[in-house]
Write a protein that binds this DNA or RNA. Structure first.
Lengths: 336, 336
DNA sequence: CTGAAAGCGCTTACAG
DNA sequence: CTGAAAGCGCTTACAG
């Protein structure tokens, strides 16, 4: 592989000048710069990442922590992150967090401490207190995505508002017999405000209150945020005489499962049942699902921009946009 | 951050000995080693990746090239790769290949040439000839996954055999009116053998021949390997009197789309229509889809092992396993 | 604007 | 088994 010396020799300058011309740091005359650039291009020279980062302290590399990579939401966010980082010339080092405590610990105690990355994007869900502390101790810019994770700066949607918007759409249509598919249980007291499923359930309940519907009249079913889980929960909800006329599912995947359950039971959507989800899943259009889109790909892009900005100066937390997208899965109730 | 000097001082040895004790390379007495390990642990020392790789030429890092990250198949493979690499202590640097020619070129000409990685796993689909050449020129171990990509060592399933197995299952059940959803067109002549959709269509046709069914009697519909695409293709196939009794779709996502299309048309699966796919999609169980599983997560794991092995010695190409999983979407035809 | 030189934090022959 | 020292390939004050 060609080294900086060869470029320097070819361009007739010192390695210091080559470095300056290539990095854009420091003063170089236009003529010299172009001679260096030409020589580098002719030789196919690319700066060694390890030499450069050892000498400069900059790695041109961002670490990305994901709870799981093979679920639609997270892979979509990751695609956005990759796109934002690559176009800025940054590499991305991926850390998939497993449930295995030993492997998790290794990520925080070894992998992330190799000084390989200049900053970190952490998909906030699933990080516990001590892991957040370890991230802070890294002394690097860290951006949390998807949930507020104090003291880290976070990019997150207002999940209460998201759920309230989705449910409000249903009550606005005239539905009074509502059900929620999501979580039943609050997380531990002190992490409650960060537990997204709980926030969405709270938004659901606030929307009921907004509409003057008794909280006790609404049914809740627990599910695991998958299509299968949503299907099973909806079967329990729908396969009985006092079924609800509308369901707010805390994710599009569960909502799609609910739509399939309705079909399985011979119910018409939206004739017999309205369904609304959250996310903006790639299949929501195909299934005609009304949803509150939170633009996950764009979230990844923003996280990339945020961590890059944080390399220069501390960045404040920012709210993420969301939007109700009305499709065919919701309509006014046909009865009562 | 603590450096190797501090560990050396704390353990009362030279930095050379610390390096040897920590890396396991070279001879160190048991007593010394444990003193060093204790000191390193007490100080929370982690070797600097850039210093270590500059000095040793080993980066403990593998590059992974993906055509897209936010599709089920690829994110599942990636999860397998990440799991295999992380448990070996390796970092993974992710390169998402876009369609943008400038960004693609940057990956091959700049990103991969920074000497940041010790080896590369390339999801073979979508790499063109010149990109393969660039990979070879890297002079690093490269493992191609999913398609043969000479001269790179490849891990791939025999896609002709996969399709033949799937289709043979259908003809074995007694179906004679078959259709294929996949690709209609062969790729360019000289890349034909690597074009997976074409290989699967060929397997379909071989199975027809095996069963003595005229090739001309089978219908083909083009689709883009998504649920939506499979749905649209199946609608064209099924919404007419001379519809087939069985469909072989070249991916599970298309097969699921076909099952949904059948339902939309009021057709019973498998009563009126049998459907078989390829992949082992996470939803294939939920939809009761018969499929040829190719274990994508496991493929990622194997690719990780293969590239790690290739760091030591050249590895030969290897065939990947696949398996017919029969579920409720296939049965003997009820007519003709 | 440019160069000589120190230094980034390790690893590894080499010598003992 | 252990240490002194060179060297990995850059970057960046410092001096001019």
């Amino acid at each position: 592989m060609v080294s900086i010396d060869e470029v320097a020799r070819a361009a007739g300058v010192s390695t210091a000048t080559v470095s300056r011309a290539l990095s854009g740091r420091g003063q170089v005359s236009a003529a010299t710069r172009s001679r260096v650039l030409d020589a580098a291009a002719a030789l196919g020279y690319v700066v060694s990442a390890s030499a450069s980062s050892l000498a400069s302290g900059r790695a041109r590399n961002i670490g990305v922590l994901l709870p799981v990579v093979d679920r639609w939401f997270f892979s979509t966010v990751l695609a956005g992150i990759a796109s934002g980082l690559q176009s800025a010339g940054y590499d991305i080092t991926l850390y998939a967090l497993t449930d295995d405590p030993v492997e998790r610990a290794a990520v925080f105690e070894t992998f992330l401490r190799r000084r390989r990355v200049d900053g970190v994007i952490a998909i906030a869900i699933s990080l516990d207190r001590s892991e957040v502390r370890r991230l802070v101790e890294l002394g690097l810019p860290v951006v949390a995505l998807g949930a507020t994770l104090p003291p880290l700066p976070s990019l997150s949607v207002d999940d209460v508002a998201v759920a309230r918007l989705a449910t409000g759409h249903l009550t606005g249509l005239g539905h009074r017999a509502l059900a929620h598919i999501g979580t039943l249980h609050d997380a531990d007291d002190d992490t409650e405000r960060e537990h997204i499923p709980s926030l969405r359930r709270r938004g659901f309940e606030l929307a009921l209150r907004d509409a003057g519907i008794a909280r006790s009249s609404a049914r809740h079913e627990q599910a695991d945020f998958t299509i299968e889980g949503g299907h099973a929960a909806a079967m329990r909800l729908l396969d009985r005489p006092d079924r609800p006329t509308a369901i707010f599912a805390a994710s599009d995947e569960m909502a799609i499962g609910a739509m399939i359950a309705a079909r399985d039971l011979g119910l018409d959507v939206p004739g017999d049942l309205s369904v609304v989800g959250v996310d903006g899943h790639e299949l929501s259009g195909f299934f005609g699902l009304t949803t509150v889109d939170q633009f996950p790909h764009d979230q990844g892009l923003r996280a990339a921009e945020a961590v890059l900005a944080a390399l220069e100066a501390p960045t404040p937390p920012a709210p993420l946009p969301f939007e109700l997208v009305v499709r065919g899965s919701t309509a006014a109730p046909s009865r009562g």
